[in-house]
Amino acid sequence: MSQKDKAIAFGALHRKGNPVVIYNIWDAGTAKAVADAGAKALGTGSWSVAASQGYADGENLPIEALLATVKSITASVELPLSVDFEGGYAEDPAALADNVAKVVDAGAVGINFEDQVVGGSGIYAVTVQAERIRAIRRMADDRGLPFFINARTDLFLKESDRAAHAGLLDQAIERARAYAGAGGSGFFAPGLADDDLIARLCEASPVPVNIMMMQGVSAPKRLGELGVGRVSYGPGPYRAMMAKLKEDAAAVFAAAG
């Protein structure tokens, strides 16, 4: 398939009530393994990609290293690929669009794009983040590519007390609507775990909602019943694989005396 065909196919996988499952990867090897396991699409996790190369999350991985990883994945696997691009490695909308264009050139058909101020504190104002999304959409439209912008809010991740999440729902809905209006294709709400709040967000959002699997989050099938359009696993697969590697290595060293 052409890149445009992949982008169309990727967007079509996002259906409210019948979510696409993204088991997040971090390099070409894991991309092949997940593809062989039956994935319909692929998505990187920024934490995993950075950690696998010795960096901390938060745009500490050089953008050149990230782009090289993306190219190696798209060269190895034919499935559509979405890249966790954090805050886009830029604040200015024009510079941001230029950076996302490099991700497009590397073969990806979508990104996760978050509204927290990477390297700073808090999250961008709704109007500011909407303009940043709008710049990405203009770039993609100029290329004739139905690029999938998974607009992420960090409202819930930044509030560790889940009992307070109900009070953030109206803000999240406001952002979902604003980001969709600016050209967002999906709305990503990591950290949100309550079934009722997820259902209310899905009902109010004009675009498919992405929920990340973590402790306390219902199984993907149940999330589909709540109206979710995408389920992802974030750094979970990387952490699980590294724990297993450490366990196996320790057993080998113990047996060797």
Score class of each variant (00 low, 15 high):
residue 124 Y to R: 11
residue 105 D to Q: 05
residue 112 N to I: 01
residue 127 T to I: 02
residue 116 Q to R: 07
residue 76 S to V: 00
residue 95 A to Q: 14
residue 122 G to C: 10
residue 96 L to E: 09
residue 130 A to P: 02
residue 73 I to A: 02
residue 97 A to D: 13
residue 91 E to V: 15
residue 69 T to M: 07
residue 138 R to C: 07
residue 103 V to R: 04
residue 89 Y to R: 10
residue 131 E to R: 15
residue 114 E to Y: 00
residue 129 Q to S: 06
residue 125 A to H: 11
residue 110 G to P: 01
residue 135 A to S: 14
residue 122 G to T: 08
residue 132 R to M: 08
residue 112 N to R: 01
residue 127 T to S: 15
residue 121 S to W: 09
residue 128 V to P: 03
residue 73 I to H: 02
residue 69 T to P: 01
residue 143 R to E: 10
residue 79 L to W: 08
residue 104 V to I: 15
residue 90 A to S: 11
residue 120 G to D: 12
residue 114 E to H: 00
residue 105 D to N: 07
residue 124 Y to F: 13
residue 132 R to K: 15
residue 136 I to Q: 06
residue 79 L to C: 06
residue 121 S to D: 10
residue 124 Y to K: 08
residue 138 R to H: 12
residue 130 A to V: 03
residue 101 A to K: 11
residue 129 Q to K: 09
residue 97 A to Q: 14
residue 77 V to H: 12
residue 102 K to P: 06
residue 124 Y to P: 06
residue 133 I to C: 01
residue 94 A to T: 15
residue 102 K to T: 07
residue 103 V to W: 04
residue 129 Q to T: 10
residue 78 E to C: 04
residue 132 R to L: 10
residue 91 E to T: 12
residue 117 V to I: 13
residue 105 D to M: 02
residue 108 A to N: 00
residue 86 E to H: 04
residue 100 V to D: 07
residue 140 A to N: 04
residue 115 D to G: 03
residue 135 A to E: 13
residue 76 S to R: 09
residue 74 T to F: 07
residue 77 V to A: 14
residue 128 V to N: 06
residue 101 A to C: 06
residue 118 V to M: 04
residue 110 G to Q: 00
residue 98 D to E: 15
residue 133 I to Y: 03
residue 110 G to K: 00
residue 122 G to R: 09
residue 119 G to N: 10
residue 103 V to S: 08
residue 82 S to Y: 03
residue 138 R to N: 06
residue 103 V to E: 11
residue 78 E to W: 04
residue 112 N to V: 03
residue 110 G to A: 04
residue 65 A to E: 12
residue 117 V to L: 12
residue 132 R to W: 12
residue 139 M to K: 13
residue 142 D to H: 08
residue 100 V to A: 05
residue 93 P to R: 15
residue 128 V to K: 13
residue 122 G to W: 11
residue 105 D to S: 08
residue 142 D to L: 10
residue 127 T to Q: 14
residue 82 S to L: 03
residue 129 Q to C: 02
residue 107 G to T: 06
residue 130 A to L: 04
residue 69 T to N: 08
residue 114 E to R: 00
residue 114 E to C: 01
residue 86 E to N: 04
residue 102 K to V: 05
residue 96 L to T: 12
residue 125 A to Y: 05
residue 98 D to A: 15
residue 128 V to L: 04
residue 141 D to K: 06
residue 133 I to R: 09
residue 74 T to Q: 03
residue 65 A to L: 09
residue 92 D to I: 14
residue 95 A to H: 12
residue 117 V to C: 06
residue 65 A to W: 02
residue 119 G to Y: 07
residue 133 I to N: 00
residue 110 G to V: 01
residue 135 A to K: 12
residue 70 V to H: 01
residue 85 F to Y: 08
residue 89 Y to I: 05
residue 139 M to W: 07
residue 122 G to A: 08
residue 74 T to I: 11
residue 129 Q to D: 05
residue 138 R to M: 13
residue 105 D to G: 10
